[in-house]
């Protein structure tokens, strides 16, 4: 799967969880899920589970811990699907 395709899908997954609309509109690989998008820390697990379902992958807790930015999520997905 192409990086851009993965990125677009990840953005769609993040939309319902992001509280900061402004950060969402200018989202990039460097955008932080908690600091910029203001995703509630309790919802990070839900995001990872959505990613698993959407991309048909399994994520370990160690790998989930590494996801701090949108780019981290994309990297995780690309690694798991290649």
């Amino acid at each position: 799967m192409e990086n851009q395709e993965v990125f677009d899908k990840v953005v769609e997954i993040l939309k319902p969880f992001a509280k900061n609309e402004e950060a969402l509109s200018s989202i990039s690989h460097e955008t932080s899920l908690q600091k910029d998008l203001e995703v509630n820390s309790a919802r990070l697990v839900d995001i990872v589970l959505e990613i698993e379902d959407n991309f048909d992958i399994e994520v370990s807790d160690d790998d989930a811990d590494q996801v701090g930015t949108v780019g981290d999520a994309v990297k995780l997905i690309v690694a798991a699907t290649s």
């Binding site: 697990v45 990872v48 589970l49 698993e52 399994e58 994520v59 370990s60 807790d61 989930a64």
Partner: peptide
């Protein structure tokens, strides 16, 4: 036990 889904 390492999979997040199983932990949840």
């Amino acid at each position: 036990p390492r999979l997040l889904r199983n932990q949840v």
